[in-house]
């Protein structure tokens, strides 16, 4: 398709993004980046790991997103005594007719907020992550496809570490994005305060249907990504693995392991989704850079030496972005 026509098509089809953003903006003050990333996860068919201190409107954001889409939402508080059956469902014996009935768990929703995922033991985490990957659940002998769109937003509390089961690297890699939420600006916090103490109840109207999201997902594949951008993505990912090849000798001892091929895929999908949100039919280096930290921060591990010098994976990725030549 001609790029002008494609651009026009994307412009028209992505009009709902502005509607969605403004609807969410009625309730969520600031946190534009988080909302944008939620939509990227939704469009890119990925899941999101959210890290931030309590009270930063994580639950509210996804609840509002679900309401704005007229989609099913479930919040699951992960606790040490949670069982996989509590999440995916189980079979119950019906004494009346002597059969086993299947009771579906809360995972059968469009939006799942897995609150404090690191509080549940490994078997529950695996059950959730398997469902995220396979997009289907097997209870007894029956297999059920999960509803589409299916987005898991898992949160991790970075402060309390006692009594937690940190997600292993292989499982963290399954999240398309890891967003770190920071405190709002002073002006934003003032608006939050005023909004919450007023008696006016804000009503969220459904502005997008899940079908429209699925249609947009298909359209995402049409967003043009040039060979130069693909090479740029590869350069960034390879620089996390072999920093010396890119003249980043100082980072060689700082990186314990680099980003996986899943990072490359998600970086490309994320950049396309970003271009879609910006209502463009093609990807530019800005899209890659915008999404880069969120895609890579949980996929690049730093060494003990780097940790001792308080160098985080974000610092490493930023350094790489400053060095890799933009096409």
């Amino acid at each position: 398709m001609d790029i002008v026509a494609l651009n026009e098509k994307i412009k028209n089809e992505s009009a709902f993004i502005d509607l969605l953003m403004s609807e969410i903006g009625k309730v969520i003050v600031g946190q534009k980046v988080m909302v944008e990333r939620l939509i990227i996860g939704l469009l890119g068919n990925g899941h999101i790991l959210l890290e931030g201190v309590p009270g930063l409107a994580k639950t509210l954001a996804i609840k509002t997103l679900a309401a704005a889409m007229k989609a099913k939402f479930q919040r699951i508080q992960f606790t040490p005594d949670l069982l996989p059956a509590d999440l995916i469902g189980t079979q119950i014996y019906n004494q009346k007719d002597g059969n086993f009935l299947i009771r579906k768990g809360p995972i059968f929703s469009n939006f799942i907020l897995a609150d404090e995922i690191n509080r549940a033991p490994a078997k529950v985490q695996s059950a959730l992550l398997e469902a995220m990957q396979e997009r289907q659940i097997t209870i007894g002998e029956s297999t059920f496809k999960l509803d589409e769109p299916f987005l898991v937003l898992a949160t991790q509390n970075p402060i309390e570490q006692e009594g937690t089961y940190p997600l292993p690297e292989a499982q963290v890699d399954r999240f398309m994005l890891k967003i770190v939420i920071t405190y709002p600006e002073r002006s934003e916090e003032l608006a939050i305060m005023r909004q919450n103490i007023s008696l006016i109840e804000t009503k969220i109207n459904p502005v997008v249907s899940p079908e429209e999201i699925l249609k947009a997902r298909n359209l995402l594949s049409e967003v043009y990504i040039d060979e130069k951008i693909e090479k740029y993505i590869l350069d960034i990912v390879f620089a996390t693995r072999n920093p010396k090849q890119f003249g980043l000798n100082s980072l060689a001892d700082m990186i314990s392991y680099g980003a996986s091929p899943r990072a490359t895929i998600n970086l490309a999908i994320g950049a396309k989704a970003m271009a879609f949100i910006k209502r463009r039919g093609y990807v530019i280096p800005e899209d890659v850079r915008a999404i880069c930290l969120d895609v890579l921060r949980h996929r690049v591990a730093v060494t003990y030496e780097a940790e001792a010098e308080e160098i985080t994976s974000e610092n490493v990725i930023q350094e790489i972005l400053n060095k890799v030549v933009v096409p």
């Binding site: 651009n7 043009y224 040039d226 130069k228 951008i229 039919g281 530019i284 280096p285």
Partner: peptide, 9 residues
């Protein structure tokens, strides 16, 4: 230039 480089323009 970006249009030509990245958008097949």
């Amino acid at each position: 230039a970006d249009l030509v480089k990245f958008a097949k323009f």
